[in-house]
Design a protein around this nucleic acid. Sequence first.
DNA 1: GTTTGTGAAACGATTCACAGCT
DNA 2: AGCTGTGAATCGTTTCACAAAC
Lengths: 206, 206
Amino acid sequence: MRKIAESTVRRLSLYLRFLEDFGEQGAETVSSEALAARGGTTSAQVRKDLSFFGSFGKRGLGYRVPELTTRLREILGLARRYRLVVVGAGKIGSALVQFGGFRKRGFDIVGILDRDPAKIGARWNGLTICDAADLTGELRRLEADVVVLATPAEAAQGVADQVVASGVRAILNFAPVSLAVPEAVTVKTINLAMELEALSYALTHQ
Amino acid sequence: MRKIAESTVRRLSLYLRFLEDFGEQGAETVSSEALAARGGTTSAQVRKDLSFFGSFGKRGLGYRVPELTTRLREILGLARRYRLVVVGAGKIGSALVQFGGFRKRGFDIVGILDRDPAKIGARWNGLTICDAADLTGELRRLEADVVVLATPAEAAQGVADQVVASGVRAILNFAPVSLAVPEAVTVKTINLAMELEALSYALTHQ
DNA sequence: GTTTGTGAAACGATTCACAGCT
DNA sequence: AGCTGTGAATCGTTTCACAAAC
């Protein structure tokens, strides 16, 4: 498949959520204009984004909500569930496990790993924290699809290397570093400090 | 000042962190090449990003670490501290308050607001949860610089409207909606579901 | 010799605008 | 008449490449 821009994929994810809302409200069809209004973009952008994957609409009518919802789920790879393993049982790891809001969107946390003997064996939300000493083996044993990297910055690259070695090809990174990984592995980084600093910049420059 | 791209500002935030690391390791100077290697970008990109704000380097030498660190802090508006108010005392709000990692980067959580009588009055990490009934008034009383919006999706736009009315011009939004706000207000949205779905997309398409 | 700062070129994403279908 | 799908035009960002400074 042709290379699709990061920004396009993110908008598809937004459209899916809006479609779910429209569906709950009983809408049968939706226009690119309506989706755009909801997502802070333009109707041309919506049509272009969808056109990369096919022609899902009817001219003069718009898109059928249930069909487009299903197609977007397929495109995003959400027809299945994913197994998440959290590495790092600190504040962020704890928050993510407690949060648990992923499950209803198809992502199950199936393991928590840490190196700290004081934490190993503790139970969080029904899961026991396991030793991350043999990280690669644990990830294989747990059949991890995605690693949620929630260690301190210093440990992050080492963990990433082991994740790559284990064959896991997706990392959600909360450490404030840019990870070096092979092309076949995808990393999405969430950096709260960076977002706050971008707000600080905006507040400062008028 | 000329309009600077979002992506540039985010990279400046990264460079600042790398400079702090270089500084701790005792480096006196750093080249655009070294910063680029650390940040997963190119030396030309680093130089271009910095050039929007001035000429901070010496040809043949590179950049002096302490000077560039100071200048980046100024550019990003980090010469002062910011007052954060968390609106929504649910799982995400709780996690953010417990986390507390913002303080050492200049952001202090000074208030937590919620509408739920069962939560009002509880103490979290030394802060008492206050009633969000008069949100606008509370934000003024607390002298909020930034609102961290951590309510359910349904309540988010209503809260955003009150935030705007209060005069606060920066929102860090954790609700999975795109907020409509006037141009003078900056919103950064963190959407974990979107990040996971982008990983799902990457895993699915080879 | 090294590395910056920066116009120019290349690239990529968004918007326009309209033909074509319902 | 209404709305999609899409090539063409526009806009913005990144990369190139080199003159200027050390």
